[in-house]
């Protein structure tokens, strides 16, 4: 399992744009990538059906549609991201208990400080959280 998330700056910017736009509600989404590549390339902002400042949940029908689309494209959810809007970018107990995609990088951002972009990435497998390095690269992608 990789201990580094390599991600394009344009995608990081898109995640923050989404999170800042939905602040103070939590924002969530997926970055899909070719199966087996571990490369997040396709930015997919999702609705937070909970519309809450302390909770997020993908809308069940959008979830099905996007997961089917990834299947059809031979893609995987490489990154699953969400924002915390008043606390640090670290998985809460809820995040850990509900993490159901052991192959994904769980990206947490915080929008608690309008001037500071907090971006961290974790593996969450069987209730165990492991923070990993984030390598933000500049490349041209269709984010």
């Amino acid at each position: 399992m990789n201990s580094v998330l390599t991600i394009d700056r344009a995608i990081v910017d898109a995640i923050f744009a989404h999170a800042r736009r939905d602040h103070p509600d939590e924002a969530c989404g997926v970055i899909a990538g070719p199966a087996g590549s571990d490369a997040p390339t396709r930015f997919i902002p999702m609705d937070n059906s909970a519309r809450s400042q302390t909770f997020y949940q993908f809308d069940s029908m959008e979830h099905l549609r996007v997961w089917r689309e990834m299947d059809d494209n031979d893609e995987e959810p490489v990154v699953i991201y969400h924002s915390h809007t008043a606390t640090e970018a670290f998985p809460s107990r809820t995040d850990i208990n509900l993490a159901g995609e052991p192959g994904a990088h769980y990206v947490l951002v915080s929008t608690r400080d309008p001037g500071v972009d907090e971006f961290r990435s974790f593996r969450i497998v069987d209730g165990v959280v492991t923070e990993e390095k984030v390598d933000i690269v500049d490349a041209k992608v269709d984010a």
């Binding site: 909970a50 969400h82 915390h84 995040d95 509900l98 995609e101």
Partner: peptide, 15 residues
């Protein structure tokens, strides 16, 4: 599909 969900504050019932 396992729901993709979580959030900042302890959601006591989740566990």
């Amino acid at each position: 599909l396992p729901a993709v969900a979580g959030g900042a504050l302890g959601f006591a019932a989740a566990a």
